[in-house]
Simulated assay, not measured.
Amino acid sequence: MIVRIMGEGQVEVAQSHLAALNKLDDELLAEMESGDGPGFRRTLNALLDQVREFGAPLPDDALEPSDLILPSPEATLEEVREMLSDDGLIPS
């Protein structure tokens, strides 16, 4: 799966890591729904860190279509809320 982190570029993440990423995505969604700003920030950073850890960066000149677009680490709760689907940031 090709994942783009806004402002950073693309990485390729194996499907085998999707369950771990979905767990963090579920936590992020719950924190957003409850208005837990500090929890939201902590979980968003954990999610992005795992994508970076699990992913293999694509070359800067590669223009692959992204299967998933994640917000930048600086994104606000409101900005991320606009990106959400019913499943969160990562489709189940």
Rank of each mutant, 00 (worst) to 15 (best):
P91G: 08
S85F: 03
L84R: 09
D61R: 05
D25V: 14
N45R: 12
L44H: 01
E27I: 13
D25I: 14
D87C: 00
E33D: 12
P59G: 15
A56R: 13
D86W: 04
V3P: 05
D60H: 10
N45W: 07
R52S: 03
G7L: 10
D26P: 00
D87T: 00
S85R: 12
A14M: 13
N45G: 02
L29Y: 14
D67L: 11
A46H: 11
P65I: 11
P38M: 12
V51L: 11
T76W: 07
E33K: 15
L68K: 03
R41P: 02
D36E: 06
E82D: 11
E8H: 08
L21R: 04
D49H: 08
E53N: 14
S92I: 03
Q10A: 14
D67K: 11
L68G: 05
V51H: 13
R4V: 12
L48C: 11
Q50T: 02
G88C: 10
E64K: 13
M32Q: 08
P73Q: 07
R4W: 10
F40G: 01
L58I: 09
T76E: 05
G9R: 08
G7D: 07
T43N: 09
L47E: 02
D67P: 07
A19Q: 09
N22T: 10
P71S: 03
I90R: 03
F40Y: 12
A19S: 09
M32F: 05
A75F: 02
L58T: 13
D87Q: 02
L29V: 13
R42C: 00
D25P: 11
L28E: 10
S34K: 14
A14S: 15
D61C: 01
D49V: 00
M1I: 01
S85M: 03
V11Q: 09
V80A: 08
E33L: 15
V13Y: 05
E79H: 01
E78A: 15
L21Y: 02
K23R: 15
P71M: 04
I90W: 02
R52C: 06
F54T: 05
S66I: 11
V3T: 06
R4L: 14
L84E: 01
